[in-house]
Design a binder for these strands. Structure first.
Lengths: 236, 236
DNA sequence: CGTAGTATTGACTATCTTCAATGCCAGTGG
DNA sequence: CCACTGGCATTGAAGATAGTCAATACTACG
């Protein structure tokens, strides 16, 4: 068992998810041994390095193991915007599969680790079906996040909803919810993601702090117990 | 062959997608006979009737064949907002699969038809893998649409981007792009979807018409050739 | 022809963006 | 140690943009 864990952590090494101690975070449950979900643990990515760039040919789907990814898209007119963040347990790169190329750039927001999924052989239809079913489940779960529950709200509520959503996702990935959360992104990146100016995000956070809904100190935020309860409710 | 088509069109009847004349719109390609993608063509839904409601237990995934669906979500505080539209060839209901219940209500925006997907038996792993792979492909394609290319733009540009995106999707589903497009939704619904006031949508459309980017007459819009070219480009 | 739902327009107000200045902090090199 | 630098965060003021409210027009349908 110990040797397996060591193997699982060697750089760029092949891992059977069923043998990985983090299997619950990634797949939400223990996997039956030999069900054929194989990944390649990738070398650690330092902050600022890119996993793949917009326009690059699609190679594989990745699963975030630790840290946080920022997804950025440059539109034809040259403006860049943040289209998402990925935290541990979330998939990234799937959109490139149907298109053949990646439609955005994925950069490490913090030092991080990902696993690269190995596509099952065609002949192994059972393993293939098992993996596909799980991928479909996960990707539709992420669509939900993409539905952006804050559309149409005023800026303060958008920022509050963003923070609460991000906290919920970090919590699902194993963070303690009652502890303070260190945001991996800048105010400007939050603004770009929400379609707000950096200053608006700053003012919204200040207002949330004044009204007691959050405690904010730089990148560290602590949700008030009220906000925490509503997140716990949503997650249940 | 003719009898097959008749069968395919009988109400609530079982259909093998491989035998359906509309297979290219739904699956993007001809399917090998007997690949096991089976659906049940549902009775026609009249405008305003609901396919499924928020909170209902998940039963099946549907594929839109004709017409348009509006997806609406009521938040805990009671406010309702439009979270999406589905046009022919698009999937709906997948999000309910992982959650067990539907997170939004799907209502017919126009008279419409859907097919209900039949889940392959576990034993038929090959058929299962084939279907799952196609579902994953389609659903990730729809995530792309969900990335909402208009976030952060001013209202006029948001409305323009929405119309162009909707036109592109209708075109993919077989509409002629150079013809005028009849929007199935009200200004208020567009506003709810984009997070804008109804009046802002009206003024944006008026401005787009004045600047010659669109021709708008009530629900009927015609894209100018410039806008049409950029859509053709994006689709290629 | 009346009605209900939808669309449009104007006037006023609230909210957000932009611009500009300043503060804070960690890292770097003298 | 300390000045300097660059990136990020914060604040104020002015102007642009979108929301709200209210009145009116249009259209399909019985």
């Amino acid at each position: 068992m110990f040797s397996r864990m060591r193997t699982a952590r060697r750089r760029g090494s092949d891992v059977d998810c069923a043998d990985c101690p983090a299997v619950r975070r990634c797949w939400g449950e223990k996997l039956p041994p030999g069900c054929g979900i194989l990944v390649q643990r990738q070398p650690r990515l330092e902050r600022g390095t890119t996993l793949f760039a917009q326009g690059e040919r699609f190679v594989a789907i990745y699963l975030v193991v630790a840290g946080c990814l920022t997804l950025r898209e440059t539109s034809p007119d040259g403006t860049e915007r943040v289209v998402g963040f990925r935290v541990p347990g979330e998939l990234v790169g799937l959109e490139g599969w149907s298109l053949g190329v990646h439609s955005f750039t994925a950069t490490a927001a913090t030092a991080m680790t990902v696993c690269r999924l190995k596509w099952p052989q065609r002949e192994r239809a059972v393993a293939s079906a098992a993996l596909l079913e799980r991928l479909l489940r996960k990707s539709t779960g992420q669509i939900d996040a993409c539905a952006r529950p804050w559309t149409g709200l005023v800026a303060v509520e958008q920022v509050a909803a963003f923070i609460e959503d991000f906290a919920r996702r970090m919590r699902m990935s194993g963070e303690r919810p009652d502890e303070r959360l260190v945001l991996p992104m800048t105010r400007a990146e939050i603004g770009s993601y929400l379609g707000l100016a950096e200053e608006t995000v700053v003012r919204a956070l200040a207002q949330l702090r004044r009204s007691g809904r959050l405690d904010v100190k730089g990148r560290a935020v602590t949700l008030s117990s009220h906000a925490y309860r509503s997140i716990a409710l949503a997650a249940s």
